[in-house]
Simulated scan of single mutants.
Amino acid sequence: MTDEPSVPTDYAKTLFDLTGRVAVITGAGSGLGAAMAIGYAQVGVDVVLADINMDGMKATRATVAEQGGKAEIQKLDVTDRAACFALADKVAASRGRVDILVNSAGSAFRSPAEEFPEEKFNFILDLNLKGTYFCCQAFGGKMLSQGKGSIINIASIGSFTAYPWASAYLASKGGVLQVTKALALEWRDRGVRVNGIGPTLMESPLTKAAGQKTSITADWIKARMLRPRLGLPRELIGTAIFLASDASELVTGHIVMCDDGYMTQ
């Protein structure tokens, strides 16, 4: 590829081709992580599923297999920095490289701010923010050694705006936004791009577990939606493919919003 301002023959044909690339997806046992893992496998990506949810990962792997793909399961607690680095070493040794990292592991807890339990605040910050950062460090280091890679952090509409009973979650996702920008700034000249996806309120096990579908938090968000429906995990796959591919070569340090227009208001 040259730097000439022309369009080479067949240039566009391979922009979205991810065949044979290696992707690690955290939180791949359910919800958004599972959907993106399945989507990557459908386009020929060598998928490594990482989660503490072994049963969930087995279900994701089974779906990948049913559709003709392959996926490997690796148990990972993303809040354990040493474990993140150990898995990065293992994947790099067995696959020879790590091309894509999707940081989808996360959780939420709903409580008015004045009553928010300290242990829940710590849990949310540790999982959503520190877990994302540790995986970026571990797998990003492999990408820096390669001189190329794409990291995709799962942010949120809550990275940019507030809603009630979600102060810890908002703090964590605001932090994910800033980590994404900071790492993009530091790593772009060494070949590694760092971006994020900002979903709207999604139909997923996390939203159900947090009670969002009938909660003060969910009611607040749904009242401000342009359309009265939650997002579906599969609706993030296209953006995940774009950000992992050469089609997004000039995109780094951004959160690509998949919010159905929520942030236009």
Rank of each mutant, 00 (worst) to 15 (best):
A218D: 02
M225P: 08
W165Q: 14
A244G: 11
S215N: 08
I237C: 02
L243V: 11
T239C: 05
R193G: 09
R234M: 15
E235T: 12
P228W: 07
S215T: 03
P164T: 02
T200R: 00
T207G: 02
R193S: 07
P199L: 00
A166H: 07
A168H: 12
G175A: 09
V179K: 03
L230M: 13
T200V: 08
W187I: 07
K173F: 11
I216Q: 05
T207M: 04
I221L: 04
G158V: 11
K213S: 00
G198P: 10
L177G: 08
R193L: 09
E186Q: 13
A182T: 04
N195Q: 09
K173S: 08
T239N: 03
P164C: 10
A247E: 02
E203Q: 11
V179D: 08
W220D: 06
S167L: 07
S248M: 01
P164H: 03
A182Y: 08
Q178E: 15
G211D: 08
E186A: 14
K208V: 13
Y169W: 06
L185R: 15
G198R: 04
E186K: 12
N195C: 13
W220H: 00
A240K: 06
G158T: 09
Y169M: 04
A155W: 07
T217M: 14
L243R: 11
R229T: 09
R229D: 04
S156W: 07
F160K: 13
R193P: 03
L201H: 01
D219P: 01
K181W: 13
I241L: 14
G175V: 13
I241Q: 08
S172L: 09
W165V: 15
Y169R: 05
I154P: 01
D219T: 00
G231L: 05
I157E: 05
W165K: 06
A162Q: 09
L206G: 08
Y169L: 00
W220Q: 01
S167G: 10
A168L: 12
P199Y: 01
L232W: 11
P164G: 11
I237P: 01
L250V: 02
A155R: 07
T217V: 13
K181D: 11
E235S: 09
A209R: 13
L226E: 14
A244H: 04
S245M: 15
K173R: 07
L183R: 04
P228T: 12
R188S: 15
K173N: 13
A244M: 09
